[in-house]
Each structure stands twice: as C-alpha cells, then as structure tokens.
Design a binder for these strands. Structure first.
Lengths: 333, 333
DNA sequence: CCGGCAAGAAGAAACGTTTCTTCATTCAGG
DNA sequence: CCTGAATGAAGAAACGTTTCTTCTTGCCGG
C-alpha cells in the first residue's frame, strides 16, 4: 500500500472543475457562490482527504498568532510546582490571549528546546522568571516581543506585571505578629521576584515593629531538609515562621509537628502565598493571597500593546489580600 | 514614531549586495561562502533587525513538525489535577517527541480553542481521554494523526498506550486483602480508562477471593463530599477502601480520621495510583504504580510510526508495580 | 594552452494558500 | 436597445523562505 501524496487546493479545484479561488471561498465561507458549488467543493475535498495547509495560510494572511507561555521552574526537584497558581495563570492567560485573537501555546522553559522548535511566535509571556532568565534572554535575542509575570531580579529592562508581594507580606505580618517578634523566613529553590519581595516585606515589618528577621534557605522541599531549616531558625530564636509559598508552608507545618512544636502556641506560621489547602490545614495557615487571574489578564493586554507597537506600555503591580488564620491569628484591634 | 516594516530576506540581500541564496546560506550555515561574506550578511541582518519568517521556512521546507499534547480534565473542580503524573507525562513525552525531530506543544483540551488556534499540527497525543472525547473526535475530523495515552472507553478505533491498571489493581488487592473482604471503591470525576480498569481489577479480585465490591462515586474532591462517600461505603460494610488515585486517597485518609476510623486497624486503605506523597503519609498508603515515562515514550514512538505511515501500529499495555505499605500491609507468606 | 575541479554566487522555481483585479453573463429599468 | 448592478468565477500575484540548477572565475596539472 503506497503513500498518497497530500492533496492541495489545486487538486481539489481540478477535481471539482473550479478555480482555486472558488475552492478557497467555498471552504472558508467567503466569496459569492451558489450553495450547489459550495457543496460540490466540500464533497470533493472530503473525497480527496484534503487538509488545508495552515502554514501556507499563515504565510499569506495573518501569521499564526502564536503567543508562548513559559513558566520558569521553581525549586523542589519537580518539573512543575506551585501548581494551583500555575494552573490559574495558564487558564486565565490563555483565555485573555485568545480574546485578543492570538493563540496561546504552553512551551517548555528550555532554551535548547525553544531553539529546536523555532516556532513563528508573535510574542511570549515568561512566568516567574529566574535571575538572568535564559529564556527571557533568548526571546530578546530572537526579537520576540516578551513580558514577564514576576520580574527577573537581575534585569533592568523589560515590561512586567507582578503581585505587590512586598506590601502584602508586610501587611500580613503587621496584622499577625506581636511587636519585637523574631521572625524566620524559609525559602527553597532559585531566587524569584516574589521571594525577594516577600523577604523585603518582612524586613519592612521588622524595621517598623522592632522585630528581628532570620532568613534560611532550605536545600530542597524534602522533609529532612525542611526540618533542618526549621530547626536552624528555631535555634536562632524565631517564634514565627513564614514560608515562601503554600507548599512549603505545609511542609514546614509537618516539620514543626515532628519537632514537637505547637502552632501557634510555640511558633506562629505564615505563608507568603495562599492556596485552598492552607485554609484546610490543621491549624489553618495565615497567608497573603496573590491574584493570578488579574496578573494574567494584565499581562496578556500589555503584550498585545507591545506587539501592536503602542508607545508607552508600563509595568503593573497588583495588590494582595491577607488572610490571618489560626496558625497566626490577627492581633486584636 | 512610525512603525518599521519588517525586513525580509530580500531587504538583507539588497543591503548586503548579495543574492537571497547567499543570505539564506550565510544565516543557516549552509552553502559555500567565505567567512567575510557571512559576517557581512550577519551584520546587515542585525542592523535591519531581520527576523526570518519561520512560517515561510516551514512552508518551503519541512513544516513545523508540531505535535500537540492535550490532557483531558479530571474531576475535582481544578483545571489540572493528578499533577505529578501529568508533569511526568509532559516531560517525558516532550523529550521523546523532540528526539524524533518534532516539536511538542502543550495545548488546552478544548475544541473551541483548538479550532481558533488552527495550528499546523502533524500529530497529537490525547492524555486520559474522556468517554467520547470531543478533542479526539476533533483531531479525527481534521485528519490530524492522533493516539491516546489511556483509552476512550466509548471508542473502538484509534491507537492507544495504557497502563495495565486492571492487572495492577488485582495484584495489589491479592497481595493486601484477606479473603472475603468487603472492598469499597471510591471514584470522583468523569469516567476514564484507568478508573474503569481499576474497578474491573477490583472485580477480578473479588471474584477470585470471595470478596464483595461496592463502588461509590463522590460528587467532588471537597472534604464533605469525600466524607459522605466514605461513610456510605463503611455503612455498606466495607473494611477496605481503594481510591482511584493518589490525591483522592489522601482525601479519603483525612475523611477516615474525621470519622474516627483507624487505618489499617478498622479500615485498610489503598490507591490505584501511586505518588511520593502516599509513602510520606501517616500511615504510608499502599498503591499500584503507573509508569508515565514508559507510557510517554511508547506513545511518541507510535505516533511517529503513524505519521510516517508505517503499516501496522499496535496498542501497548504497560505492567504496573505494586507497593504494599502500612495502610494495607502485605499478607504474610 | 587546455581541461577539470573547486569555490563563490545568482536566478528561478517551489511550497500552498489568500486576495485582489478583472471578466462574463444575466436581469431589470429607462 | 442600452446601461448599470448583481452574481459567479477565474487568473495572477503576493506572502518569505529554501533549494536546485547553472554560471563564472581562478588555480593547478598535464
């Protein structure tokens, strides 16, 4: 059984006894032609298993309108973490991109793979970029319009949208920690803007409320490593702990249990990022909540402005909400 | 400030004083030309901010080689669940697809969005298809080569690769449940092949070991719903529970705690799918383990065979491993 | 000097669709 | 009968790159 050559619009036109214009019009629903002609063309196209070349269409018309979404890896060994946040970003960014007439394509945060793909991208959104993010640099090199959700802390240029994590964390700590508390900040994985901002927010709080801040980077999200980091902070005098995000906060809670510490009796626990699991934990964990949906929408809108060459596209910061819960109750008014 | 028209290869050729062939050769590293010419062309391209049209290249040469990966939604309200499994599938399938010279593109499991995208796809992999999966039907309609990881239970045609969940669950139950046990199976969300197979495997076990099988579908993954489903099974006489997957198993464990049941003293607990979290739970939960990496590799290889028109592409079933743990210890001898 | 080979290069066509321009026919109204 | 409008349709060119074929020049060896 030999392979059939792919049918082109010329083959369909010849078999239907019309011009390629008529085939194009018949299949696209454009043009002026009688229903009988349109149906004949459809029948022939079906018979020949004709499949229009999206590449040819893209070349002639309006391109393919591809917008990449690349999510930089977080720490913790998995390919993808912070999954609730990530899923929300993808969902909302995809919808926003589609509403601008573009096509969202989720691509790996991997320069080698992007180089092999060589897709005709109109633009790209990099989520939670690393410091000196290689994918961000790649897009710039290839002159692909790009912006970030979160910021590359080692990069001055580029448009970004980000949560106001610094202010959110500061407000959360103001609302939950007594004056002069010694606070331990636990982080894991590569430095990202939301981590840097959270640490800055904790510093702001400490300066305002006469607290002390200890920062500890864990080697990984594995239980023994988290436990070691927690222990180091407790030994350093910390009576409150804030974790960089929800997953780490849950790990810290487990570690505190293993170490025989009561929450919030012995140690208050907070998270710089919220998730449904935190409110379901025992005790429910206090957190500052990001707004991934809003971020995604702002990002998509700005990227479109960039692509269209609108003159003055500015960065955006989205305020966070704070939720004091049982792990670090709100201070009485 | 007026918009600059995009530079084409013709513009570069004119500015560099060479033909378009020479520009193409210089930028691609092909052809025979002196280094000085090559450098001159590069300089001009840079000066003109020339960006080659990947669409034009794809049309003339070898297409874009896009392979879509679409993951059908599971239950539980989130856009994406079973995230560890999902991340493994994406990672390994992406690598396998790249090694065949194609480009993996993760796309939404959404016919409307796929229709708007109109990407020049050479093939597609649908992961965990729904019954009468609409995306699967879309790809067939558009004559896009397709296979599935997991099966559409309401579809006879199409190539698939799948875990041998039926046999894996049967073996797990044989290894952990005493003769005559009344077993409750909890499931949530749309029917998928791995769920159907797991139920069948449990039925096989019940037939062999004189057990009784009760199947309960939860309305969602929320704690009250899971608790209601667990309670219904316990009231029905179940002394062992098996959850469709890891996330649900963890929820069932929480529900059992809320209901004051000891695991495994009052009720044995098992999961039809494993994850690291299950071995970290208290008690560690017995599970059958899928092999997403192997599945992804087999899928990518078969899809390539399908695309190349190789005559006889067959389905594949991958055996599972079983891990008896404290929640349902292995039967002695 | 002549012929062959290698290096450098250009021109034309291909890829498959869309769109713009032009043409032909028919019908209706003045 | 003539003119204008509407309908149906075709042909050519555009889109931007790659590739194939052919040509030119210079060098070397017989």
């Amino acid at each position: 059984m030999s392979r059939q050559k792919k049918a082109t619009i010329r083959d369909v036109a010849a078999a239907a006894g019309v011009s390629v214009t008529t085939v194009s019009d018949a299949l696209s629903g454009k043009g002026r032609l009688p229903e009988a002609t349109r149906e004949r063309v459809h029948a022939v196209a079906e018979q020949l298993s004709y499949r229009p070349s999206a590449i040819a269409r893209g070349l002639r018309s309006d391109g393919l309108g591809l917008i990449a979404i690349c999510i930089a890896p977080a720490g913790g060994g998995g390919v993808l973490t912070d999954v609730g946040y990530w899923a929300a970003i993808v969902t909302h960014a995809s919808q926003a991109i589609l509403s601008t007439g573009h096509a969202p394509v989720l691509l790996p945060h991997n320069v080698e793979m992007l180089g092999k793909l060589r897709l005709p991208l109109d633009g790209a959104i990099v989520v939670d970029p690393l410091e000196r993010d290689p994918v961000l640099a790649y897009f710039e090199r290839k002159r692909i319009h790009c912006l970030t959700i979160g910021r590359d802390l080692q990069r001055d240029s580029g448009i970004w949208v980000d949560d106001d994590t610094r202010e959110g964390v500061r407000q959360l700590l103001l609302a939950t920690l007594p004056v002069g508390t010694c606070l331990g900040f636990i982080r894991v994985g590569p430095m990202k803007s939301y981590i840097g901002d959270a640490v800055d927010g904790a510093r702001d709080w400490a300066a305002e409320r006469g607290g002390r801040l200890l920062v500890q980077a864990g080697a990984s999200m594995d239980a023994p490593q988290v436990e070691a980091a927690v222990k180091a902070l407790l030994d350093g005098g910390a009576h409150a702990l804030i974790a960089q995000n929800d997953r780490l906060a849950l790990r810290v809670l487990e570690a505190l249990r293993s170490l025989g510490k009561r929450v919030p009796g012995d140690v208050r626990l907070l998270s710089a990022a919220d998730a449904p699991e935190l409110s379901r934990a025992e005790p429910a964990i206090s957190a500052a909540q990001a707004h991934p949906a809003r971020l995604a929408e702002l990002a998509a809108a700005r990227l479109q402005d960039i692509i269209r060459g609108s003159g003055d596209v500015s960065n955006a910061k989205v305020p966070m909400d704070i939720f004091p819960r049982a792990s670090a109750p709100g201070l009485s008014g």
